[in-house]
Amino acid sequence: MLLSQYLKYQTERNLYLGQNFSRHLVQKNITPEEVISIHKVALEEIQELGMTDTMIISLDFLTEFMIQYGLALREHKILVEQQESMNHEIELAAKVQNTMLRTKKPELDGVDIDFLSVPAGKMNGDYVYFQDDDSDFVGIGVADVVGKGIPAALCMSMVKNGLDTLGQASISPAYALDVLNRIVEKSVEDNMFISMFYGRYDNEESVFTYASAGHEPALYYCAREEKFYDLDESKGLLLGILPDVHYMESSIKLAKNDMIIIMTDGVTECRTENERFLSRQELIDMIYNVKDETPGDLAHSVFKALEKFQAFHQRDDFTLAVIKKVQ
């Protein structure tokens, strides 16, 4: 009926009716080859067309072709369904990650500590951990697991459990990394590793002690000189590469308004649309511009500035943690 109408009057309305009908067929899971055979039967019924045998046979030929398209279509439908269920699972995993690895910032008189961690995808490959008890010490670990997604998140819970087991804020950063390295090395594949910066602040003495396992150097801001320095004196190997590694630690005394800024490579490896890397000086300038903000605001402001720098296309997980001596 639709076809004979259209053959007589090629109006927009008749074409529109055809479109509606095809949508209906898609909904009913009618395959392309079935559509052609419906078309064929319709043509045969309209006698005034005088269909020749050759034309009819050519439609059979076309039907054979369409069978492959029909199979591809079914495959596509199954894939879409599978993807939906996988997305659902990833969302559940991300929720578990958020609950299990939730980080609470520590409260300590005289020092303001805050952080911001924004994943590029659904799951975060960066992790911030605070070791906080009733003592005058506070420990802070910033880790970046190679890769992203679920394997990274599973690796992260290993770091959390390790640090939970160590349990004391006064623990030596180098010792903490020694222990974590042993745990990680035993449990990861050859191409997995974690970079980690671990620092401990002694509030009584105003001394910050740190060790690094292959992590981006933290920045030290000296308020008196209004200058930034890289904390790169204690470099060590990434976690998970060799079984027995002994890390070194260094210390620095903080004065009022001095800051320690710990970040991951989502900050330092920022690139513009034209593949130009953020220079260390540009990063320092960004931080300098907002140095008088509270640590929480500072981290947000730097994130906003970096979003702009990379034209709002965040490629890697972003993490920035700030420790500021306020008294």
Partner: peptide
């Protein structure tokens, strides 16, 4: 010109 941590992972392996 550029290598990220996944690249480091391959080299380490």
């Amino acid at each position: 010109g550029y290598m990220d941590s996944t690249g480091i992972g391959v080299i380490v392996a």
